[in-house]
């Protein structure tokens, strides 16, 4: 295990209306891992990602990206939100959505130019969506929309990628395409944190895993900690039901 942590979360507590959804989370993600966050619905998986990215303000605790607060390290981080979190009827095209990934490095007011457009085209090509670049986003299938979101994260050219259920509602081909890109990113030394629902694919896709259910149950290499004991602790008596989903 390397001793350099890409993401470090200390004593993080997040509450909605005074009801804790994440309770005293300590988590250190080593550099270069492809990590799944698993846990039942309402376990706070998305909330964990959102609080690391400063989208949700925690009531206690701190987050560090390579040892510094997130707002100092924005450019090192890319984010793929849940596909369902946006309105796909928004009047825009695939390439335009991908270009949004460049807005962070551009900063306020400055407009994207040729360089940004080129980067967006390259990212679209990588996810196999170049042919759809000018298509209105509502005219894309669910899998294609997810690929566009992935391209938007690629264009951020980050060191750490946070993804919220990138496999949700995509067909098998797209799922394979996406996981191949994620594995490629890991090979290139990137760190990936992925909220994941399908427990059966965890050992195949990921090398690191975090079990979460409001509190952190366990975190570590898949080979060592992905076992019945931790699954039962995380999913409680519903563990079998969760597997069958």
């Amino acid at each position: 295990m390397k001793n350099k942590f890409a993401v470090q979360v200390d004593d993080l507590t997040v509450a909605y209306n005074y009801k804790p959804v994440l309770w005293d989370i300590d988590l250190a993600v080593p550099e270069g891992v492809l990590m799944a966050i698993v846990g039942p619905n309402g376990a706070g998986k998305s909330t964990l990602i959102k609080s690391v990215l400063g989208i949700i303000k925690p009531i206690a605790g701190s987050v560090a990206i390579y040892g510094k607060p997130y707002n100092k390290q924005r450019k090192l981080v890319a984010y793929v939100p849940q596909k369902g979190s946006v309105d796909w009827d928004f009047p825009t095209t695939a390439i335009d959505v991908v270009m949004m990934g460049t807005y962070g490095s551009l900063g306020w007011i400055k407009r994207p130019g040729l360089k940004e457009k080129k980067a967006a085209l390259e990212a679209l090509e990588k996810v196999g969506m170049l042919a759809f670049k000018n298509r209105q986003i509502s005219q894309l299938s669910g899998g294609q929309q997810q690929r566009v979101f992935l391209a938007r994260a690629l264009v951020q050219n980050a060191s750490i990628y946070f993804m919220d259920e990138p496999f949700q509602g995509v067909d098998a081909t797209t799922e394979i395409a996406i996981i191949n890109i994620l594995k490629e990113l890991r090979k290139a030394g990137k760190t990936l944190v992925v909220v994941h629902h399908d427990l059966q694919t965890v050992p195949e896709y990921f090398d690191w895993v975090t079990f979460l259910n409001v509190k952190k149950i366990a975190t570590g290499p898949v080979k060592e900690i992905f076992n019945d004991d931790n699954l039962t602790k995380t999913y409680g008596i519903n563990y079998k039901v969760a597997i069958n989903k």
Partner: peptide
């Protein structure tokens, strides 16, 4: 920020 408030916030906008 209209299309994707989450990303917008993460980007610092």
């Amino acid at each position: 920020s209209t299309f994707d408030a989450g990303l917008s916030s993460a980007l610092g906008i």
